[in-house]
């Protein structure tokens, strides 16, 4: 008798048990701004108004789904949480006040602590730590200000700013993301 190939579907699914961290959603919901997460109905109003979703395949609902499912590592180490442009349209439209943008901030904070911050933002933060502003002062613009009759540009209180950053723990976050850059070199 001819042997037929044994067909199996069990054990072949996109999300594996070992990838699911069931407590993840509660950890997110415990953070400032994360409270709305557990109210999510996955209705998709967030995705409907998303300006990023209009140009690429990006769906806030899917990110929320991943968090609710407990896919911690995937959520925190991929760029899905760094694609949000923070326009707050989803937050404004959400019937459940999930506040996706605030949930994204919680997720980004978690990812940043683990060294997965977007390098562009890390560079901007270093710029602020050094200059007190996110943009550098230039002699050319100083001259243009004078020509426009604007008062001379003041110097940001860099001592206070760096003191605040240090006391609040930003230096550790930046250091965690520095290490990553060295490793990837």
């Amino acid at each position: 008798m001819e042997e037929t190939e044994k067909r199996s579907y069990r054990g072949d699914f996109p999300v594996r048990d070992e990838d699911v961290k069931a407590s993840f959603k509660y950890n997110v919901a415990d953070m400032v701004g994360g409270e709305g997460l557990l109210r999510c109905l996955k209705c998709g109003a967030c995705s409907g108004g998303c300006p990023v979703g209009a140009v690429i395949d990006y769906r806030p609902r899917k990110v929320l789904g991943n968090v609710l499912l407990g896919l911690k590592d995937e959520v925190l180490s991929t760029d899905q949480i760094w694609l949000c442009a923070a326009c707050f349209t989803c937050e404004e439209r959400c019937v459940q006040q999930v506040n996706f943008t605030d949930v994204v901030t919680v997720l980004r904070n978690m990812a940043s602590k683990e060294g997965h911050a977007a390098q562009g933002y890390v560079k901007m933060a270093e710029m602020v730590r050094q200059n007190g502003r996110v943009s550098a002062r230039t002699g050319l613009v100083d001259k243009m200000r004078e020509q426009l009759g604007l008062p001379p540009l003041h110097d940001p209180d860099i001592t206070q700013l760096q003191g605040i950053m240090k006391a609040a723990g930003l230096n550790e976050v930046l250091a965690a993301n520095q290490k990553k850059e060295v490793e990837s070199d």
């Binding site: 400032v32 923070a86 940043s112 602020v128 860099i158 700013l161």
Partner: peptide
């Protein structure tokens, strides 16, 4: 005046 730490900075650390 110093940087107001807007959304992109909140992404790194909200408390800071």
């Amino acid at each position: 005046e110093t940087c107001c730490a807007p959304f992109w900075m909140q992404s790194l650390d909200l408390t800071t």
